[in-house]
Amino acid sequence: MKQETSLSWLQRVGRSLGGGTIGTLTLLLVSLWVVFALVIGDRFFSASTLQSMAFQMPELGILSLAMMLALLSGGLNLSIIATANLTGLTIAFMLTRTVPGSEGIAWVGWQLVAIAAGFAVAGLIGLINGYVIAYLNVSPILATLGTMTLCKGVAIGLTRGNVISGFPDPIIFIGNGTIFGVPFALVVFALCAVPVAILLNATPFGAKVYLIGSNEKATRYSGVDTRAVLLRLYVYSSLLAGVAAVVMMARFNSANAAYGESYLLVTILAAVLGGVDPFGGFGKVGGLVLALAILQMISSAFNLLNLSQFLTLAIWGGILIAVAAVPHLRALLRR
């Protein structure tokens, strides 16, 4: 009896984290950890290794959250990278053209204004995406393909493809500083992931997103203004891309129209690896975080082993297929 309740409790925890995928991913993470520990040894556990892992993950992580939101609703957001770059350029533009004084209140204030302006741009792009998808019924892939090209076009047009660089210290700190040894960028990631998890799991809005992802029409017939939900969702997705923009520009101390373009498909890879259903309706932030940890661990380990980063890409792809095949293989075994 006792055993049974504890089992069901475990099951419930497992399910609230994202079901069978979580189990598979945890197992994978632990086994990779063991394998790399054996192969690489102490170096794998050194503080600098851990820190370098933690510095690289946040920007991909935040972008993946942005992608995940759209995927959950049965959509897709191809414009996240372009949004991030346009946001980053907006902030960079403001920071490099006018800097009132140095280290005064106006100086800090101006940086905040710049970041706010960046978010306004990101929010506007989100509104366009959301409006076109929710109210004009354009398929998300097409709509965001359009805004992606548009944003990149604006960014290239304004900068002529040039890099804008040289930011004040507080901005640099966001990408490169640490708090008690923890990279600040990782803190930013946590500050995104936790609210997104709460939003999805414990608010009416989140519940509606999942239901829309499975069946938008039935959700509408239940009295949900699905269009308003989708509009809000794409704004959130865009704002997350904006946060990623700040982290990215801070880490590189520069902004450009074409940074991070190779991330686009990797965010889909990470989300799907984390158990997000590419057709919508299912997926948890916990799964995504595990997936990101796995991807980052492989990348860092290969780096320590002096293996090509491109081999890392190939292994990432292989892992995605392996994890995606687990449900079918499990069903085969059961038969």
């Binding site: 889909i268 890879l269 081999l311 890409l313 990432w316 792809g317 297929i321 995606a324």
Partner: peptide, 12 residues
């Protein structure tokens, strides 16, 4: 999913 994965595998 397959083609996102194989894109990375082939290219990598």
């Amino acid at each position: 999913i397959v083609s996102v994965a194989t894109l990375n595998i082939f290219y990598g």
